[in-house]
Design a protein around this nucleic acid. Structure first.
Length: 730
DNA sequence: CTGGGCATCT
DNA sequence: AGATGCC
């Protein structure tokens, strides 16, 4: 049987057990201690004892975010609408029979008084989502995101720490539900780790609620699969612990294989073709036969999933590895519309990319063609490297230039897929930046820190005059450090205006952009002769008349041919100073006034608690939650090391224990020590998380190493925080 | 009347 | 580059 070199570890037991295969389940794995019964004991992987994995799942996440933005929505049946689908709805609506992923027509029919809020712009959801992850990571860095509304946490270490410090495990009990048990009847001393996990989960849920105003469920178990499965047992806003002895129960009661995370539509179909429908079917199915169909590793993994075994680690997610923006529609069939849509998507995406601070090296364009039969899987994409002179503009703030130069790039890719001579019918366009590179050079990093998630309300004062010396002095030690990065918004503007130079000729002609590079560029001639739309003609005349002026205002590498193709309003916008500042105004990212029937949208008045700048919130968090983390305060008493706060080992970054937290090199210890304790706390956790765009943590070129994991660890960070303002002289 | 992301693996 | 999976 093809047992590949991967998947080892747990396989030792699982693999063996698979020989006894036909046995329903209950492998021959010796349970460690307690847990008699037919509990499947995974682990036994030598090193790791029992893990304690937490799974957090926010209740109807999008709806909660909208209800925070507009509290009036709390009392009405609320649906979040994307195109013609209700992607989620609040619990008021659910009581009226609504479910997720219901069509708007059905929903309205079932519930005429349903209030709808458009949810196609994910900005607010994304921001809130990362706040949740951030908050969790401030307690324990081992947090893995799953979508926008779920997070895994490996709380094993936290639990072990509490175990050693917990004086009394006796008068101690579980918090929340216990799967298939009455909580009061279960002794925590029989399951000390899971019991402690249940308390940690409860505390974290409470933190999420008090600091961010969000409710959610949690599952506590010994692996990710089980934690996720059990977390939804009681909803909403409750938590459930799964004891090992109930493993069979929870797996067995799944109504179909599709319910197993990791078994999607396609896999379920293939399994069904083998005659497998229930989880038990899969448990009993001979591994050999499964291998034939899926190959060794996948077969073994499926087998494991069926019996509740999942040794996959909680892999810290960190900053995203790609940023994309897309829109779907019923029909798009003209190149001009495609160009406009791409421009719109790129504007939004580039702005997001700019806030991220990293520099994309790859661009990808994805389309979906209309097809009556199979609409779902008809995605095609083309990608290409982003010339560095373009990519550099994104993090540097000249994002308008970047967009203008990316548009022809995107169109080139488009024409690799679509022959615009023949008719076409698209239903989706997606633009994506990937291969995100942390910017290396600190340059003259006046770090005005524009928070990635928390939306640095306004361009900071840029009072970096003296704080800058602080930073520059110590920071550049060895590895470069975190605060080098961004230019302030102020700088962006300056640079934009000062950037204007005379246009030179562009590599891409109008024709090239429209029809693909193969069509050679007769450039200007072709443009003039082409029967352009009115808007374009008008624009052209403007262009001609004021040719010099306009040209001078255009960024250097800008392609005038492409520019001319843009609708007038877009041209005007691109040339307008406002374009630089409010780039997204044309795009989806700026909050399109969501149409809320019946309910006046109150833009302000976010609920009192949640929208705090995150600074005051963390206060006491660790003290309350984890004694060993807090050990008194962060004040003084710290060695104040100057070196990094991360250690690199075996190709991946590890967080130092919280008690060993060190300062980034550019932090003045004295300044730090005078900060309020809660602020110190927050900063410490932030450094531990390595949030922002700490650029180059990669001093070396790790040839290839363990790609994914490495990149994840190294690329972590991403957002930044407004906290550093506390270091500025007030 | 089927969304808008993200990730991983091949 | 595509497929698949998850939310």
């Amino acid at each position: 049987m093809g047992n590949s070199e991967d998947e080892l570890e747990e396989d030792d037991t699982e693999w063996r057990s698979s020989f006894l295969d036909p046995a329903p389940l209950s492998p021959a794995a010796p349970a460690p201690a307690a847990a008699p019964g037919p509990s499947l004991n995974k682990s036994s992987a030598g090193t790791s004892a029992q893990r304690v994995i937490l799974h957090f799942d926010l209740d109807c996440f999008y709806a909660q975010v909208e209800m925070i933005r507009n509290p009036a929505l709390r009392e009405v049946p609320l649906g979040i609408q994307q195109k013609y689908i209700i992607v989620t709805c609040n619990y008021v609506a659910r009581e009226l029979g609504l479910t997720k992923l219901m069509s708007v027509t059905d929903a309205k029919e079932k519930c005429p008084q349903l209030v709808l809020v458009k949810g196609e712009d994910l900005t607010h959801y994304r921001e809130m989502s990362y706040k949740v992850t951030e908050l969790l990571m401030s307690y324990c860095p081992l947090v893995e995101r799953l979508g926008f509304d779920e997070n895994f946490m490996d709380a094993t270490e936290m639990v072990e720490r509490r175990l050693t410090q917990a004086p009394d495990l006796n008068n101690f009990s579980f918090t929340g539900h216990i799967y298939n048990h009455v909580s009061a009847n279960v002794k925590a001393s029989d399951h000390p780790r899971l019991a402690l996990g249940s308390h940690i989960a409860a505390e974290l849920r409470e933190a999420i609620h008090s600091k961010l105003g969000l409710t959610g469920c949690a599952g506590i178990a010994t692996n990710k699969l089980l934690a996720k499965l059990v977390s939804g047992t009681f909803k909403p806003n409750q938590q459930t612990t799964l004891l090992e002895e109930n493993l069979c129960d929870i797996m067995g009661c799944l109504s179909s294989l599709r319910k197993v995370p990791g078994i999607g539509h396609q896999t379920a179909k293939r399994l069904q073709a083998l005659g497998l429908v229930s989880v038990q079917d899969l448990q009993r199915f001979p591994l050999n036969d499964l291998v034939r169909e899926f190959g060794g590793p996948s077969a073994q993994r499926l087998k494991n999933l069926a019996i509740g075994v999942d040794d996959s680690p909680v892999t810290p997610t960190g900053a995203p590895q790609s940023l994309s923006d897309e829109d779907s529609f019923k029909k798009m069939s003209s190149t001009k519309d495609v160009l406009q849509k791409i421009q719109q998507l790129l504007s939004s995406l580039v702005e997001r990319m700019n806030k991220d601070g990293r520099q994309p090296q790859t661009f990808r364009l994805t389309i979906r063609r209309y097809s009556k039969t199979n609409k779902l899987f008809g995605r095609e994409s083309r990608q290409c490297p982003i010339p560095s002179h373009i990519g550099q503009k994104i993090p540097s703030g000249r994002s308008d230039d970047a967009v203008l130069q990316l548009v022809p790039l995107a169109m080139k890719l488009f024409h690799k897929m679509v022959d615009s001579n023949t008719s076409f019918h698209l239903t989706l366009i997606n633009v994506c930046f990937s291969n995100l590179q942390t910017r290396g050079a600190a340059v003259s990093g006046k770090g005005s820190i524009t928070s990635f998630f928390t939306h640095g309300t306004s361009p900071r004062k840029t009072q970096t005059s003296s704080s800058q010396s602080q930073q520059n002095d110590s920071s550049q030690s060895a590895d470069s450090q975190c605060m080098d990065h961004q230019f302030s918004v102020h700088n962006m503007v300056i640079q934009h205006t000062s950037q204007m130079t005379v246009t030179t000729k562009s590599p891409d002609s109008y024709e090239a952009a429209l029809h693909g590079s193969k069509w050679k560029q007769s450039s200007v001639v072709a443009v003039k002769d082409a029967p352009l739309q009115k808007g374009c003609s008008a624009a052209r005349s403007d262009f001609d008349e004021a040719s010099n002026t306009v040209t001078q205002r255009l960024p250097q590498k800008f392609d005038p041919e492409v520019f001319k193709l843009l609708p007038e309003d877009i041209q005007v916008e691109l040339l307008s100073p406002a374009y630089v500042n409010s780039f997204p105004s044309t795009s989806t990212s700026s909050s399109a006034p969501t149409t809320v029937p019946d309910v006046p949208h109150t833009p302000k008045a976010p609920s009192p608690q949640p929208s705090q700048p995150f600074t005051e919130n963390i206060k006491g968090a660790v003290n309350d939650l984890d004694p060993s983390c807090s050990t008194t305060t962060v004040n003084h008493q710290r060695p104040l090391a100057t070196s990094g706060f991360l250690v690199k080992e075996e190709g991946r970054l590890s967080f130092l224990g919280s008690s060993d937290c060190k300062f980034p090199g550019n932090v003045d210890p004295e300044v730090f020590s005078e900060l309020p304790p809660d602020v110190q706390r927050e900063l410490m956790s932030e450094w531990k998380q390595q949030k922002p765009m700490l650029k180059t943590l990669s001093s070396k070129k790790p040839g290839k190493r363990l790609m994914t994991k490495d990149r994840k660890a190294a690329g972590k960070g991403g957002q930044e925080n407004s906290l550093f303002k506390y270091f500025k002289p007030s």
